[in-house]
């Protein structure tokens, strides 16, 4: 087994370009499972965990930059994250178990591109950007453009995630929600996972509405149709019901051995109804 352990970003990029088949490894919480099942045997491992410059949460103009190797536990407990991005803190507290939160990293979670990634709806409504790096330079990718399908990202070969940028919200939302619906109280994969933000006009009409769902399509989705429909409307029960009906414009849940399409859709609608309904 070949393990490459770079100490700096430069060294990581050099080693990765020399070993383009290497598996980037940070917390390893998902990779170890695949490894144990024998599906990755024989591949070299690019262990990124010693790259200090990619760990931690830093202020940047207009927001925060979260290093790719920052763990869910750090995000969950960080005062600036809790103050400015509470849905992300809540999502990190709902990931797997305390042990997984301690090891798993935000960059690793994104690179793994599971349709059920618990942090993704929060990152989608906060309109995060993923900063990537390769020997050809940096890219700043809007979060929703990060995913190409189940377990597929927009990363080029030998490109790595350096940080996730979180722009501060322009104003405090009137209401916000994070809800994970799993299979049990811990160590659960989401059947649906939701994050929502809403801003209201003085008269009660919706000024802006952002809502994202995970596990409801091959990748995380913002509810573009429902968001557009509700803009400028008062959240009456008929408006809410129409918005709930518009879910299927943006998500396409399936039956699998974790749940049913019917359940995923109805429960996602219930979360939306309850969020907008008082």
């Amino acid at each position: 087994m070949k393990v490459l352990r770079p100490r700096s970003a430069d060294e990581a990029l050099r080693l990765f370009s020399e070993n383009p088949l290497a598996l980037p490894f940070s917390g390893g919480t998902d990779l170890m499972v695949a490894w144990n099942m024998g599906s990755l045997n024989g591949k070299p491992v690019l262990d990124l965990s010693a790259i200090r410059e990619w760990i931690g949460i830093r202020k940047m103009p207009g927001g925060l930059a979260v290093g790719a190797l920052t763990t869910h536990a750090e995000l969950r407990d960080h005062p600036e994250i809790r103050r400015n991005f509470p849905l992300l803190a809540a999502a990190c507290a709902a990931v797997g178990s305390v042990q997984i939160q301690n090891r798993g990293t935000l960059g690793g979670n994104i690179a793994n591109a599971s349709p059920a990634g618990d942090t993704f709806p929060a990152l989608a409504v906060y309109e995060a950007r993923v900063r990537t790096i390769s020997r050809h330079g940096r890219r700043n990718i809007p979060f929703l453009h990060m995913f190409a399908g189940v377990k597929k990202t927009a990363l080029n070969q030998t490109e790595l995630i350096e940080a996730v940028e979180l722009p501060f919200l322009h104003a405090k939302p009137a209401r916000q929600v994070f809800r994970k619906v799993g299979t049990r109280a811990a160590q659960a994969i989401s059947k649906t996972v939701a994050a929502g933000l809403v801003w209201l006009e003085k008269g009660g009409a919706i000024k802006e509405f952002r809502f994202a769902l995970g596990s409801m399509a091959p990748t995380v989705r913002r509810l573009a149709a429902a968001e557009a429909f509700l803009k400028g409307r008062t959240p009456s029960s008929s408006a809410i019901e129409t918005a709930a009906g518009l879910l299927t414009k943006d998500v396409h849940p399936i039956d699998d051995f974790r749940s049913t399409a019917e359940y995923r859709l109805e429960v996602s609608r219930n979360i939306l109804r309850s969020f907008l309904g008082t």
Binding site: A186, Q187, A188, I189, R258
Partner: peptide, 12 residues
Amino acid sequence: QFTNYVIPTFAD
């Protein structure tokens, strides 16, 4: 697998 055959954990 234990991921998808869901036995109760201590938290349950």
